[in-house]
Design a protein around this nucleic acid. Structure first.
Length: 420
DNA sequence: TCTGGGGTCCTAGGACCC
DNA sequence: TCTGGGGTCCTAGGACCC
């Protein structure tokens, strides 16, 4: 990446979208809830100040938060998608050098603006606010990772008016000294713990670490992070959105599902949605996987987490064909007597639809890996990492070892393994 | 007792992001 | 009774080939 970049990030995006159409929500603690009003997925600044954590299960905090005057909204993804498109369109009028990173964030190439960087950023911010009603923060720096740092500062400290530039090293170091490791883009709990073991406890210390040493111990990703913190740009702007590699549609049910008919209806609906996404991106799939899960939070109930890959003879985006395949998968997975809480469909082995029509596609096989990863994750959450590691001890691939006895799904056998 | 030296591809797993 | 829904990348090690 040549020249500085900007990260434009919408403030509390979902809450801000709701406020655009309900101005009475301004200056009040507001949260937006996930599907089925399950847990908190967005908070206004006022709600954050009340100590409402991200992801908080609503039913556990309902009484407390309502007594504090917290206003609740169910999520409306159609609205958020539409508002996002409007914001991005405005950004694209400021520069052709645009990477849409997520529903509420974009990186902008800023080379050529030189000493007008800050003025340009403020104009952009005002334009988005005026034309959409969405407040944004802008961070400008020599590398993407540092634009994240700058944005972090812009969001937290109002005195900057939503725009922060970190162009010289003194300013960068000062910012890094005031942050936690896990505030950095690319550092979560596991990595932070490993860094701590190496004696690296702050972002500034990480920046000052020897990149070769970091690469040896933690791999190329963290080495790049060190360089990015030093202002050496390693991550390019992705101007063209690459094709998706997988598409998922899944939902938790409002109440447990106990009949195969209901489950088939639900999965048919998810498959329709996934197929729509597929066609919108001009793709076709040659491999899908369905999965079903019981409620992992119910410790007393019998659990069943399972997935089933289904190969399609030809890559397709035809809803009817995909639904038939998904239905076959679900029927194979279904076990009577369980209370299912969630199901979904994953489309893999994606190809450009026009190449499929010409018969020019090569099959890939990645479904098993991804679906097993998902179930492994669930088991980790349910049983705790240590118990699973214990079960796996002595054999790297416990499910392979047990494969002959696993029927019809691997994961239940893992559960059995864990109970041994 | 000793047990090649390369290369590629794939799978499984770990970690992270919004 | 009630606990979200999506995604990506990197790497070690095994399978297989010559």
């Amino acid at each position: 990446m040549s020249g500085p970049a900007a990260l434009v990030d919408c403030n509390n995006f979902y809450v801000s979208c709701e406020r655009v159409f309900q101005p009475e929500l301004r200056h009040k603690p507001v949260v937006v809830l996930s599907n089925n009003d399950g847990c908190v997925i967005a908070r206004s600044n006022e709600a954050k100040l009340l100590g409402i954590p991200m992801g908080a299960p609503w039913h556990l905090h309902k009484a407390q938060f309502e007594s504090q005057g917290v206003i609740v909204r169910s999520s409306n993804y159609t609205l958020y998608g539409d508002m996002s498109a409007r914001v991005m369109k405005i950004l694209s009028t400021f520069t052709p050098d645009l990477e849409i990173y997520s529903i509420d964030e974009a990186f902008l190439g800023m080379s050529g603006f030189d000493d007008r960087l800050e003025a340009h950023a403020r104009t952009l911010r005002a334009a988005v606010l005026q034309w959409t009603g969405i407040p944004v923060s802008v961070g400008i720096a020599p590398s993407k990772t540092l634009t994240k740092v700058a944005n972090h500062i812009a969001k937290r400290d109002e005195k900057h008016g939503g725009v922060v530039l970190l162009l010289d090293e003194a300013a960068q170091d000062q910012a890094l000294a005031r942050m936690e490791l896990t505030d950095l883009w690319g550092v979560a709990g596991r990595l932070a713990a490993r860094l701590n073991l190496l004696g690296i406890t702050t972002p500034l210390a990480l920046k000052q670490a020897d990149p070769r040493f970091i690469r040896e111990r933690l791999g190329v990703v963290v080495e790049r992070l060190v360089l990015e913190l030093r202002g050496v740009s390693c991550l390019d702007l992705e101007r063209h959105t690459p094709d998706r590699k997988s598409i998922m549609a899944s939902r938790s049910f409002g109440r447990p599902i106990t009949t195969l008919t209901e489950m088939q209806e639900a999965v048919a609906a998810y498959t329709m949605r996934a197929a729509e996404k597929l066609r919108r991106q001009a793709l076709a799939t040659a491999h899908l996987a369905v999965f079903i899960e019981t409620n992992r939070f119910k410790a007393g109930e019998r659990q069943h987490f399972a997935s089933k890959p289904v190969q399609l003879p030809v890559a397709t985006s035809d809803s009817a064909k995909l639904i038939r395949a998904a239905r076959a998968g679900i029927t194979a997975l279904w076990r009577p007597g369980y209370r299912y809480k969630r199901a979904g469909v994953l489309l893999l082995d994606l190809h450009a639809a026009n190449r499929v029509q010409e018969g020019l596609f090569d099959r890939k096989d990645s479904a098993r890996r991804i679906t097993l990863m998902r179930t492994l994750d669930k088991l980790n959450q349910r049983y705790g990492r240590n118990s699973l590691t214990f079960a796996a001890a002595g054999h790297r691939q416990p499910w392979k070892m047990q494969r002959d006895r696993l029927s019809p799904c691997y994961t239940t056998a893992w559960g059995d393994l864990l109970r041994v």
